[in-house]
Computed example of a mutant assay.
Amino acid sequence: MRHCIILFFFFVISSCATNKVQENEKKQLIPPPHINCPGDGNCSFEVLENSSLNLAYDSTGKLYPEVKEGTKIVIKYTYKRKAVENVMDSGYAEYVYLEFDPDDKQIILKDKELKKVNMIFGRICYCKGAMGYFPVQQGNLFLFNREGNLQIRTSFKVNKVPQIIQQIDENIKY
């Protein structure tokens, strides 16, 4: 009986240690969160080389972005809030697009100068009258581009719709 108790405790202790190792291994596999990504969603970047950002309008006059083949670099930042389970139309996403010339090593812009990089903000949700894409005309942008490393810092405000993402501060290797 005594051997059974010792064997039982040994089994319990060894199984707890194994779980801790597995938990630590799982944590290492998860990439670190972006600096400005809200905890209730996921954020991602796309750096699209040899592209251009076309600002098009649909038949109702609403602005939308088109990324096409070109000679510039297009950055697409995406924030997607986690959908509420079993709730229809709970999807919510925000997008920030901008483009720049690959030869530009440093860009510093403020307010209406943001038009030079075609910076637009998009809010896509089931939000009647409060969604769509809008040119960013209020804010600032610092972009540093060198040898596949991109540092982007921006803070901005779009007064036409509510927004969650108001600043981005990221270092991206592409």
Rank of each mutant, 00 (worst) to 15 (best):
M1T: 09
H3W: 04
C4L: 14
L7Y: 06
F9L: 12
F10A: 15
F10R: 13
I13Y: 00
S14C: 12
S14Y: 02
S15I: 07
C16W: 07
T18E: 08
N19S: 13
N19V: 13
N19G: 11
Q22C: 09
E23F: 11
E25H: 12
E25R: 14
L29M: 15
P32Q: 14
P33Y: 03
H34L: 12
I35H: 12
N36P: 00
N36S: 10
C37E: 05
S44A: 14
E46S: 13
L48S: 09
E49I: 11
E49S: 15
S51W: 01
S51K: 07
A56V: 14
Y57T: 15
T60F: 13
G61F: 11
G61A: 09
K62G: 04
L63F: 03
E66I: 12
E69S: 05
G70L: 05
G70M: 06
T71C: 04
T71N: 14
K72G: 01
K72R: 12
Y77N: 03
Y79N: 02
Y79C: 00
K82C: 00
E85Y: 09
N86I: 06
V87L: 09
D89E: 12
G91W: 03
A93I: 03
V96D: 00
Y97H: 11
D103L: 14
I108G: 05
L109F: 05
K110L: 10
D111W: 08
K115C: 03
V117N: 00
N118H: 11
N118T: 08
N118L: 05
N118V: 04
M119F: 03
R123E: 00
R123Y: 04
K128N: 10
M131N: 01
M131W: 02
G132V: 05
Y133W: 08
F134K: 06
P135N: 10
P135C: 08
Q138W: 04
G139H: 05
N140Y: 12
N140V: 10
L141W: 00
L141Y: 00
L141R: 01
F142R: 10
F144G: 05
R146F: 09
L150K: 07
Q151M: 10
I152A: 04
R153H: 07
T154E: 00
S155R: 11
S155A: 15
K157Q: 08
N159G: 14
K160W: 03
P162D: 08
P162G: 05
Q163Y: 04
I164T: 08
Q167E: 11
I172F: 03
I172N: 03
K173F: 06
K173A: 04
Y174H: 10
